[in-house]
Structures are given as structure tokens and as C-alpha cells.
Amino acid sequence: MTDTTARVALVTGGSGGIGKSVVTKLVDDGFAVGVHYAGNKAKADALIEEVTAVGGDAIAVSGDVADENAMAAAFDAVESAFGGVDVVVNTAGIMVLGPIAEYDLDQFDQLVRTNLRGAFVVSQQAARRVRTGGAIINFSTSVTRTRLPRYGPYVATKAAVEGLTLILARELRGRDITVNTVAPGPTATPLLFNSNTEQTIQALTNATPLERLGQPEEIADAVAHLAGPARWVNGQTVFVNGGLA
């Protein structure tokens, strides 16, 4: 076990997109980080190399977020390496869009497994393991409020995550652990670009008063605030979306 006084974070989906920016930001803030990945070991290993090259401390852990045994092992690995877990950031998720009337139910089951069961499993482990003074941060989406067509199945999973998170915050009364949800707006990540047409992306860009897409680093800034100084923000869904209505 590494002897370290640094706070420790586990970031699911930490090898790409918003997750990678969260890892980088938390390392900059002095955290030791467990970088979780589901399938792309090479990307996770590359990120670990980037972190260690600048003097940071990180390890890679793997597994299906919906598999309770795999996630228990991931938490075990982080605790073994760094002595405990203070912050859990659950960015892992998938997005496949389509109209509700035509949506494939097998695909819906996969969305529910990854986005909802995965959030539940990770939150459950976090509730058991996060140390006093820590934080649990789940992820939703601003589309729970904008209600865009074709996002129905995805939004159904994310709205459920918001409800789960708000109740967990109250169940952890007395432990000095904050539990919040971050709900990004349209953010320049592969998840957005691979799930939408160019026309839709342009419409999303124009929809915000700032007339641009968010950057992953801007979402990471909000996460870092919740993971660190924002101790009076608890049981909330925080929208990070450039003013998207």
C-alpha cells in the first residue's frame, strides 16, 4: 500500500471524454486517482502514463459498472493502493438515441444496465466505502429538462439516477459525505459527436446563450468543486450547461 496523505478518488469511465478531464483535474488538485475503464485498457494505461509523467499518482482498474463483484474489486484495488476512498465520480455511461415508439428493447435494457444499474452499483459501493468528509458525484444530463426528441430512453435512465442520488444524500445523514449529481449540457466529447448528426450538434451549439459547446474541462471544474470545497452543496442536481434552457 502506498503511504500517502493525498485524498483519493475513483473515477468510473475515467479513460475518455469527460472522465479523462475529471481525472486530470483531480490529479492537479492533489488527488491520487483510480482510473476505471470498461474495455479500452490502452487508453487507461496511456492516461496513467500522462498522470505519472507530471508527478501524479494513479492506477487503472477495470470492470463492468453493473457487476457488483467487479466494482467491489475495483474499490478494493484503489483502497489497497492508496489506503481508502474519499471521492467517487461516476461518469461511466452509454447513449443510444431513438424515438420511443421505435426503440429496440434490447438496447433499452443495455442502457438501463449501464446507466442506471451501473450508477446504483457504484453508488452502493461508494456509500459503504467513502470516508468521512468525502463526496459521491453521479452524472445525469441537462436533457432531463430540455426534453429533446429521441433522447427519451437515455433521459429515462438519467432521471432515475438523479432520484437515486438525492435520496442517497439523505440516507448518509451524519457521515459528512455529500452526494450530488452533475448534469452537463452539450459537451464536445465522442459521446456527443457519435450519437448526433452534424445538424443536431449545430442546433445544440446555438441553443446556449454562450453559443458554443461546453468543453470537458469545464465539466471537470464543476466536479472538482463538488469533490473539494463545496461542502454545503448536498443532495442537488447541478446543471453545467452554459445557460441551456
Rank of each mutant, 00 (worst) to 15 (best):
V233S: 09
A159D: 13
T181D: 03
G63E: 00
D57M: 12
N90T: 08
I201N: 06
F193K: 10
E211L: 11
L210T: 12
V143G: 00
I100A: 15
L97K: 13
L210D: 03
A9M: 04
A126S: 12
V51N: 00
Q125N: 14
N180F: 03
F120K: 09
T181M: 05
F239C: 07
D64E: 10
R147T: 13
Q236W: 06
A135S: 15
V33N: 06
N40K: 04
R173N: 09
V155E: 06
D29Y: 01
E79M: 03
I48A: 08
T5I: 11
T146R: 07
P186C: 09
N180E: 10
T12L: 04
Y151E: 08
L105V: 13
P209W: 02
V85S: 04
A127W: 10
A203M: 14
A46E: 14
Q125T: 02
P229S: 14
A38V: 05
H225M: 14
T208V: 14
V88A: 02
G242E: 05
D64L: 01
G16C: 11
K43T: 14
I59C: 03
G243W: 10
V233C: 14
V54M: 01
Q110I: 04
L26G: 09
P186F: 08
W232D: 05
H36L: 09
F75D: 00
F193H: 12
A207T: 02
I100N: 00
T189Y: 09
G14L: 07
W232H: 12
L172S: 07
V35A: 02
G13R: 08
A77H: 08
D221V: 03
I18M: 15
A160W: 11
T200N: 15
A222H: 07
V88S: 00
L213W: 12
G13M: 07
P99Q: 04
R173E: 14
M95V: 12
T157P: 11
Q199T: 15
I59P: 05
K20N: 03
